[in-house]
């Protein structure tokens, strides 16, 4: 039954290939997220294939074609089978839970793993992100502000985000996941080791009429270009 969708999935994957932004990560942070996506997707494909396979088999084999009207045996259950499909999902959850926990502890907004100004290694670029309906302002350490985000290649961006009005969400799919931008409260999010390029950024939390147009561009440029830009 459901198996007929499998070719379509494969086709879609081929059509879109590596062009998909989230699946083509451009920072260490995003890479870890993408690895988790692939890892969980891999396990889930096994689950899908099992269910689709069993269902296709049962429907094919036991479908009433009108040739006989036998009465099926009324099987009320089977302890061994039921234990099997209780234990295996639990094992899958455990396998998934381990990397989930490790990455979540590291990557969650406001995690203690995020470097602060005190334990700086010199790789970090601290940027204050101010969101307001329907625009972004990025404020750099020397006080310069811009409407697009500029970062030096290889840097670890430590973003401190706050909104002036409603809740927004900061998202550059190529560089990493979202973090909400709240009024009256700072959120801190870290994106490690960004690679050179130009990336689309968007507001991902619905914030009103022109939410759609609340976009920005992220320019990751070489260290030198960044310095020059910052000083001008």
């Amino acid at each position: 039954m459901g198996i007929r969708w499998a070719p379509l999935i494969v086709l879609l994957m081929l059509v879109s290939g590596c062009g998909i932004r989230v699946l083509d990560p451009q920072s260490d942070t995003a890479k870890v997220q993408t690895e988790l996506i692939y890892f969980s997707f891999g396990i889930m494909v096994l689950v899908l294939l099992t269910v689709f396979g069993l269902m296709a088999r049962f429907v094919k084999k036991y479908r009433d074609d009108g040739s006989s009207d036998y009465l099926p045996t009324q099987t009320e259950g089977n302890k061994k089978l039921e234990i099997t499909w209780t234990v295996i999902p639990i094992l899958i959850v455990i396998i998934l839970a381990v990397p989930t926990t490790i990455v979540t502890m590291n990557q969650s907004p406001n995690s203690e793993a995020i470097s602060t100004a005190e334990d700086s290694t010199g790789e970090e670029v601290h940027v204050r992100v101010e969101a307001e309906r329907f625009s972004w302002t990025f404020r750099y350490e020397n006080g310069k502000t811009s409407e697009d985000l500029y970062l030096p290649e290889g840097a670890t961006a430590v973003l401190t985000l706050r909104s002036k009005d409603v809740i927004h969400s900061f998202w550059v799919p190529s560089l990493g996941g979202k973090v909400d931008v709240l009024p009256h409260k700072d959120n801190v999010y870290e994106i490690e080791n960004v690679e050179e390029g130009v990336y689309l950024g968007k507001c991902a939390e619905f914030c009103g009429t022109y939410h759609t147009k609340m976009r920005f561009t992220t320019h990751v440029v070489s260290e030198q270009e960044y310095r020059e830009w910052l000083e001008n």
């Binding site: 039954m1 969708w5 269910v51």
Partner: peptide
């Protein structure tokens, strides 16, 4: 019969969404 594969597909993406770091990407998209 349509429900089983369809719902299981929704279920597995549910498990994927349960992983917070992956959800940072999936969320609100």
């Amino acid at each position: 019969l349509g429900f089983i594969p369809t719902f299981v597909m929704g279920g597995v993406t549910g498990v994927m969404l349960a992983i917070p770091a992956a959800d940072f990407q999936f969320h609100d998209s």
